[in-house]
Write a protein that binds this DNA or RNA. Structure first.
Lengths: 269, 269
DNA sequence: TGTTGACACTCCTGTAAGGTCAGGGTGTAT
DNA sequence: ATACACCCTGACCTTACAGGAGTGTCAACA
């Protein structure tokens, strides 16, 4: 039986000896034999395949722990499902990064035109105005940002059933003081024409408001701008802030065209 | 002067208090004032902008250390250059990931067709044959994989000067036993017709050889397959292995169409 | 004036996937 | 006998924080 010392095995697989030590300790890939006296590790040539498989899964973005789990699976359908899921995750990440890349691109050109690195992000104009009156179907729950779509879906399912007419204006209210990406107390809503069929009638209210242009990853900048305006102008909060999605992915594929109105109910101190 | 306590500042900026502690310790974003007796941190509203800027740079993929450095820069040209460089890096990463995604896609479909997770990667047919005789222009140096293009460029520059005729066949030889992605002793070469003008004349040699189909991130699997074949069939190494790039990005934009021949000089033990 | 609850502080440990020593044993060739 | 390549373990380092323990601060309410 031909056995490879760790150094040779590491060269063949093109991974470091340290990595092999690490995998051994984790139990992810253990040498076929270990000399009881010297502790020397010996690998079999078949283990090269396993190693390649591991490296492959690593490239696919699995953690070592997940890899260990996947390797232990025997049901092909489960493995397949897991791979497909990972594929969706990678796709999603690709999209996110494409958006960031676009933002960086825009940032660079604005910066080179204005000479001010901050211009791009602090160009919010804050207005004081009454929020619009709206009759809405609403759905309040603890949810993460990724689940917005799901909750909107639930609202739109009610449209034909309850014979209401959406105006096309959608939004969300945030009831938690602190915003958490994974889970916050959020109410998503869609405006409808029929006042009598509405879940909630949102009355006009004095608000500090601004328009955020661009993808949602930078929305917190709009919030920051409003909040500092509120503080500096001697107002205070008077309710849950909300957003209206004016232009979204349904209007334009590129995030820099999107528009979101951010409203913060306020009152004079 | 209005000051924000850490909790409020964290909500406005949508970062955790922990993060603010962390940035304070690093000196990346220090509170405008710290109570000398209680240690309480107080932030100014202007610092919201700075925080947004930091978060932005973070999204662009800079490390906190780099961000600290960038913020300290005053020369706009330097900042601009740094942003552009980062943009290129992100672009490059996007491409790499697109390739991986493609690979995963292929892997899934092969797996679902064959029911064997390994099929996709271990389908190398090893042949014993003589490597082709070649007259080549060559360039040997310590280089990283990312620099291959540069060294090929240097070779192709010589083509008109030295009036040689490339056949279109290119390759690389690896002189280091252990392959290192950042720096290895590599010789890149291009085949030419004119024997008398060649830097090196590669003589035919008995080799274990296989064809690798797909992107270069999985080339080590081909090496693994050959090496285990060599060991199991009682041969041993007899020189530096090399690759011939048969189909590359110039033939097809999608990596799954690429073809690389891998040769390992061998002799019977 | 005492207590409660929200908020703040510091310090310690942990994460993922190894890298980088330090200190020492093993095996073969000269 | 010694050089040199190769192997071992164990401890600490990296990034960007998160979590928790134990303790202090502050304003409001009884």
């Amino acid at each position: 039986m031909i056995m490879l010392q760790i150094g040779e095995f590491s060269k063949v697989c093109q991974v470091s000896v340290k990595t092999l030590h690490h995998y051994d300790k984790l139990g992810l890939l253990m040498p076929a034999e270990v000399d009881r006296f010297t502790g020397y590790r010996y690998y079999r040539t078949e283990q090269i395949d396993t190693m390649n498989y591991i490296q492959r899964l690593k490239r696919y973005g699995f953690s070592l722990e997940e890899i260990q789990h996947i390797i232990s699976l025997s049901d092909n359908r489960v493995i397949s499902a897991r791979l497909r899921q990972q594929k969706e995750k990678l796709k999603h990440e690709q999209q996110e990064r494409a958006i960031i890349l676009n933002e960086l691109q825009t940032h660079i050109s604005v910066f080179e035109r204005t000479g001010d690195i901050m211009t791009y992000q602090k160009s919010y104009t804050i207005e004081v105005k009454n929020s619009p009156a709206m009759n809405v179907l609403a759905n309040r729950a603890m949810m993460g940002v990724d689940e917005f779509g799901k909750y909107y879906g639930m609202l739109f399912e009610r449209v034909p059933k309850e014979q209401v007419t959406p105006t096309g204006l959608n939004g969300a209210r945030y009831f938690d003081e602190e915003f958490n990406h994974e889970s916050s107390d959020v109410e998503v809503f869609i405006e409808i024409k029929e006042k009598e069929k509405a879940d909630i009638i949102l009355e006009p209210q004095e608000c500090a408001m601004t328009v955020h242009r661009g993808g949602y990853s930078t929305l917190s900048e709009a919030y920051g701008a409003i909040v500092s305006w509120i503080i500096e102008n001697g107002y205070e909060y008077a309710g849950a802030p909300f957003e209206l999605y004016i232009k979204t992915q349904f209007n334009s594929p590129s995030p820099e065209d999107w528009e979101t109105e951010v409203y913060f109910p306020i009152k004079k101190k």
